[in-house]
Every structure is written in C-alpha cells, then in structure tokens.
Design a protein around this nucleic acid. Structure first.
Length: 429
RNA sequence: GCGGUAUUGGUGAAGUGGUUAACACAUCGGUUUGUGGAUCCGACACGCGUGGGUUCGAUUCCCACAUACCGCCCCA
C-alpha cells in the first residue's frame, strides 16, 4: 500500500456520506426553527485566537494543537474547536453593533483538528456541529440552548441520554471557590496523582475532573462550588434549573464537571449517551456552556455568549449502534436496458430526457448482456426498466416494465421522452 | 505522550519455515444469441501492511516503521 490516509483521518465514502448529509440537513432545519443562522469561519486561525481563549495551560493548547508557521512566518493553528473562531468573527465583523438583532444566534458545522491518539469516536480530524448565541445573559437563553441540543439528539433517534449540568458561577464565585479548593487539597498534595499535582496550582478545578483512583476520595469530599455561588450566580442557576423542570427536561446536577476549555462560566452542561459503541459507560457527545468573558478576552466589548458543540463522528457511532434507520436516498426511477450498439446510443438519449424531467435514471456502460443489466436494475432497486433493442428501434417503441409487479407494456418512445409520468399514471396506477 | 492487541483478495476470514495460500460472500462469465431477485458450472491473491534481518528457503521467526483498535491522558 503506497499511500495511506494520515493518522486519525477518515474517508467518508458513498453509503456513509448520505448519513452525514442527513445529519447536517436535519440540524440545519432544526436550527432554522430556533432561528440560528449559519456562520462559516476559516479552518485555521492565528495561534493566539485559541491560546487566549482555551487557556494557556489547557491540554488543547499545550499538546493537542496542529500549529505551524506559514511562509510569512505567521503562527497558524488548525482550529481545535469552533467557538474561538466564531467569537473572533463576531468581533471582527462588529456583530455586536446596534444594527444586528440581539441575541446573535449562529451555528456552524465542519472539521476540527486535534493532535491526539486516535480511538473509535476520536479522530485527529473530526467534525462538530455547534451553535453560539451572543448578547444576552438571560437564563432563558441558557435553557433554549440546552433544550435545542436535546431536541436535536432526539431528532436523531438517540435514546438513553443523560443531561448533566453545573455552574461555574461568575468571576467572584470562581475566585472564592478556587481558593477553597486549593486550601482543601493542599494538605493532601503528596497523595494526589502526578497529573493533579500539576493541575493544583495551574487550574485546580481540573482536579475535580480527574479519574485517577487516588484522587477520587478527595474529589468526593471536596467542597462544592455550589456552596460558593454569589447571589447573582445562585439566582441565574436557580432560574436555569427551574426552567428546565418547567420544560420537562430531566437533568442531574454534578458539581464536579468542569469543561476542558477555560473560558466557561455560569451554566455548563454535557449530554452523555450510554452505549457500548463508544467504550464503557457514558460518553459525552454534546457539551457546552456560557462564556460571558470570552468576547472581551479577544478584544471585543463586554458581550456574553453561550453555545454547545456536538461530535458528529460520535453521533454516527451512536446512531449505528442504536440501529437508527436513515431515510432512503433518491430511489432509482428507471434503469434503461439496451441491447445492441444502436440501442446503446438511443439509451443515452432516453436517460437524459428522463433526467431533464426530474426523474432519476441510469443505464449500463459496460456493454453487458441483458441479463446482467437486469441484475443491476434489480440491485439498484429500480422502480422501472426500459428495454430497447432492434425490434423497438424499428417500431419506435420501448418495453417498459415494473420491477415490482413484473408487468410489461410496449410504449411509444416519444411518450417516454416527453411525459414519463403520464405513461406511468395511465398504465401502472 | 505512555502501555497492550492486531494487520492475509472487493468483503468475512482459514492456514503453514519449503511444491498449486483453504472456505464463504460479493463480482464477472456460462447454463438461457433479448429480461431481475433461483439452480448448477467456471473465473477471480505474480501475493499474506511497509522496509530490513535470520535462514539453503519466510506470508509463517526477529527488528524497525506505518496504520487500526483497546486502556491511560484528555476530549466532541
């Protein structure tokens, strides 16, 4: 094998690509109902756009970014996630301006890149569908975003979803809690895992995310951020939870969830699915949260934001394992069987005239025998076959056959070309 | 970045240090000089991930590399 695709990438072949189209189309339709409009931003950005937003010490920045210097010595990064680029575009194009309706609600869909060890549902080039909404601090918007994510997954036929939410509060909350956590963990420093020792001062909240068994006992008894919320933060979170209840959306509050990106505050959430397809236990397929300081962090005004990202590869894995039926794509209306060289010429005219009128039509290009052509027609699930040979050429007719019932009739060639639907209606309905 | 398992045709796979690398599905052809989903017959790896090495001889043993998968880390 001379060439292989780069590690952690995938070819999406016909058969699979239709599933992608279905997912993207379904998402587009749903986003449209929620009034989110598409935004397309570059696949690469300046390195700083991501290092500023994701957090200098985050794993994404420190070890997972595909970055390089271009010929103009610019430090470039292939986007590892969608939010930062959208925020950059929001600021650069002044979407915070008075002539743009608030909140500004957008969605995106496309490839993301992270230099990681590939596994199933985890590639180096992977795809996310996501939304972002700017310009409202209203908890109603938090809930809209969460409800939309749940709605979307339900459209895809995913069952057994678990919605986990938490709040990281506001700046003051976070500062207070951070200190409390350090005070609590510091005395046990020597007992923590190596990773957690590292994290303790850089980003103590991440310790909560540790799955290392030696950390678990500390995580369990660690102070909860929920006890450090300021009145404002508490109020916001209370509204979110009560609205979720009001919409009948089940959730669990887990004060130990921390997102991998540093820009979140207030509401954060993860939607997990229970499936063997994605390894043991629950795996996150959709996650997001509020990021009120992010726009200003990138040099924009104080505008709040909230959004989520959905992993398309993981979604597909889940849909396959749950045996979700994808709609049948573009069934074949007519397969033209030609016998002989002259008929083959005529056959191209027939398929073209059918296609011009909006029917899907195909024919043989390998000069195969009628039997083989009929086999193809059968395999392609053609509704009708048209057979044309010397006899038909002479009489300017064609043999039209319903593949389902086997009924065959002789039809005028011109009638087929000019009004195929009438021929079907008059003879087969 | 660390640890483990694997890599044989279009697909699922069996197999051995030494003449022709099972079997099945798919495909193509024939049985039917113009008709499908059936039967029967036949064809189909100049090669066993890539590159080295050991050996009289390697797909089979050893090493390196590549890729996939699993676990860790992390994440969508």
């Amino acid at each position: 094998m001379r060439y292989q695709r780069p590690k952690g990438t995938a070819d999406i072949l016909p058969g699979e690509s239709e599933k992608w189209q279905y997912i993207e189309e379904t998402a587009r339709m749903l986003f449209s109902d929620y009034r989110y409009r598409e935004i397309r931003t570059p696949m690469f950005e300046n390195f700083d756009v991501f290092s500023r937003t994701s957090g200098e010490t985050s794993d994404i920045v420190t070890k997972e970014m595909y970055d390089f210097y271009d010929k103009g010595d610019r430090h470039i990064t292939l986007r590892p996630e969608g939010t930062a680029g959208v925020v950059r575009a929001f600021i650069e194009n002044k979407l915070y301006g008075p002539d743009v309706q608030k909140p500004v609600k957008v969605f995106y869909s496309g490839p993301m890149f992270r230099y990681e060890r590939p596994q199933s549902g985890r590639l180096r080039e992977f795809h996310q569908i996501g939304v972002e909404a700017f310009g409202s601090e209203s908890p109603e918007l938090d809930v809209e975003v969460i409800a939309m994510a749940m709605d979307l997954l339900q459209h895809f036929g995913i069952k057994d979803l678990k919605l986990t939410i938490n709040t990281l509060g506001d700046k003051e909350t976070r500062a207070n809690y951070r200190q409390a956590l350090i005070d609590y963990l510091e005395p046990h420093f020597d007992e923590l895992s190596e990773d957690s020792k590292e994290r303790l001062h850089k980003n103590p909240l991440r310790v909560l995310d540790s799955k290392a068994p030696e950390d678990q006992k500390f995580v369990e008894k660690a102070p909860s951020i929920l006890d450090y919320l300021t009145d404002d933060a508490q109020n916001h979170f209370d509204k979110v939870t009560s609205l979720l209840k009001r919409l009948g959306i089940d959730y669990v509050v887990d004060s130990t969830i921390v997102r991998g990106l540093d820009y979140y505050n207030h509401t954060i959430f993860e939607i997990m699915a229970n499936s063997k397809a994605l390894g043991s236990g629950y795996t996150t397929i959709c996650a997001g949260g509020r990021y009120d300081g992010l726009v200003s962090e990138l040099g924009g005004p104080e505008v709040s934001g909230i959004g989520f990202g959905l992993g398309v590869e993981r979604l597909l894995l889940l849909m396959d394992s749950e045996k979700v039926e994808f709609p049948q794509f573009n069934p074949l209306d007519v397969y033209v069987v030609a016998i002989g060289e002259q008929a083959s010429l005529e056959s191209l005219e027939i398929v073209q005239s059918l296609r011009y009128r909006g029917f899907s039509a195909d024919r043989d290009y390998l000069s195969r025998k009628p039997k083989a052509q009929f086999k193809s027609a059968d395999k392609l699930h053609a509704n009708f076959t048209i057979t044309i040979g010397d006899k038909e050429l002479e009489s300017k007719t064609v043999n039209l056959k319903s593949m389902e019932t086997g009924k065959e009739i002789s039809v005028d060639l011109d009638a087929i070309k000019k009004d195929f639907s009438a021929v079907i209606e008059n003879n087969f309905d």
